[in-house]
């Protein structure tokens, strides 16, 4: 779907089908990602700008761009930007993710069963 000299996200003017009017309610997880970016991009912090968010989303590549949901793209980009700026480190992110997975209800029930 990409044309030469034009990236996948740059879709203005491309032929496409009817607009789907379906609407979903934002779940808490999506609201948390939205709030996270608002906190990082507001006038007092300016840690990540919306341009930087967008660049991070575009750099996911065409395949991930179409596979990931809207706020999955956001959190992937926010995380990438924070790593790039040295605000969080890859090792501490990996440790924290493992810690959160270990305390999830399914991990606890696995432990109890074992």
């Amino acid at each position: 779907m990409s044309e030469p000299g034009r990236m996948h996200h740059d879709m203005g003017g491309r032929p496409a089908g009817p607009v789907d009017h379906g609407q979903h309610d934002h779940v808490l997880w999506e609201k948390r990602v939205d709030a996270l970016l608002m906190l990082l991009s507001n006038n007092t912090r300016r840690i990540i700008t919306v341009d930087e968010l967008r660049r991070g989303i575009e750099e996911l590549g065409a395949e991930a761009y179409s596979r990931l949901t809207y706020y999955e793209r956001w959190v992937a980009s926010v995380t990438h930007n924070l790593l790039e700026k040295g605000i969080i480190r890859a090792d501490e992110l990996g440790r924290k993710m493992a810690e959160i997975e270990a305390r999830s209800p399914e991990a606890r029930s696995r432990k109890e069963a074992g």
């Binding site: 997880w29 948390r32 990602v33 996270l36 990931l68 706020y71 999955e72 959190v75 992937a76 926010v78 995380t79 924070l82 969080i88 992110l93 924290k96 993710m97 810690e99 959160i100 997975e101 999830s104």
Partner: peptide, 9 residues
């Protein structure tokens, strides 16, 4: 990605 959000926050 939910885990990633919680970890980053």
């Amino acid at each position: 990605y939910q885990t990633m959000e919680l970890a980053v926050s």
